[in-house]
């Protein structure tokens, strides 16, 4: 019983963290361009245009 009292909150907190991370990434526009993001990792760093 006592281990449940520990494990259930842990499970919930971890899940909630994941959810929060997802909502944050959604808000900061990381889901706006999935195709682009998949391809951008292939550009070499020295070729990256500078971003302002």
């Amino acid at each position: 019983m006592t281990n449940l009292l520990l494990l259930i909150p842990v499970a919930l907190i971890l899940g909630a963290l994941g959810l929060a991370a997802f909502l944050w990434s959604l808000r900061s526009g990381q889901f706006d361009d999935l195709d682009g993001a998949a391809n951008r990792i292939l550009f070499d760093d020295d070729d990256r245009p500078r971003q302002g």
Binding site: D33, D35, G36, N39, R40, P49, R50, Q51, G52
Partner: peptide, 24 residues
Amino acid sequence: CIWLIESLLSRQKGVRSARVNMTT
């Protein structure tokens, strides 16, 4: 193409950022 457009644009004087959304 995305890389080319962004590179061409950011090399211009006065450009602060140029970002192409590949999906849209």
